[in-house]
């Protein structure tokens, strides 16, 4: 379905959306980062916020490739970026079996501090205003309020 773009910049009904699909190959991750960084600069996010948003999206895409699609090149990762008058929203969808985020070990507790993985969700939650997973756990949605 074609994105529903409407409204003029600054208007209450402003909405722009772009969606792209990448194969489950981590070599494509920097491309996603580059597109997002450009968008964040256009939206006047600070350099620090831009880096934080970019890292959050990288985490989401990496999780979709590794844990969702398990590097299966036949399974795509879909990334949708949308902007309305208030916020930037990013949605990342994989074709995996899903997971329950509450079952992911807290990387700040005890021996988990010494594990060499499992910090992605921590970073996303620290950097974005909202982070939520679909009930099945195959779609991640994150949002960040636009700078004023």
């Amino acid at each position: 379905m074609a994105p529903e773009n409407r409204g003029e910049p600054g208007s209450d009904d402003y909405y722009r959306e772009v969606e792209f699909t990448i194969p489950s190959d981590i070599e494509f991750v920097p491309m996603v980062e580059a597109a997002l960084t450009r968008l964040c600069h256009d939206l006047k996010f600070s350099d620090e916020e831009t880096a934080q948003i970019a890292v959050s999206v990288i985490e989401g895409v990496m999780n979709a490739i590794k844990h969702g699609n398990k590097y299966d090149l036949k399974k795509p990762v879909r990334v949708r970026l949308s902007v309305d008058k208030d916020q930037l929203t990013i949605s990342i969808k994989d074709e995996g079996e899903g997971f329950q985020p509450e079952e992911v070990a807290n990387p700040l507790e005890g021996e988990n501090l010494f594990r060499d993985h499992g910090r992605g969700i921590l970073m996303m939650r620290a950097y974005m205003d909202e982070v939520y997973h679909s009930e099945k756990g195959t779609r991640l949605t994150m949002s960040k309020k636009l700078p004023r």
């Binding site: 880096a51 910090r119 992605g120």
Partner: peptide
């Protein structure tokens, strides 16, 4: 160093261990 993702942090922790 600009930004790091969790995979990069994992590399640091792996080296530490």
């Amino acid at each position: 160093t600009g930004m790091m993702d969790s995979s990069a942090l994992g590399a640091l922790v792996n080296a530490y261990t």
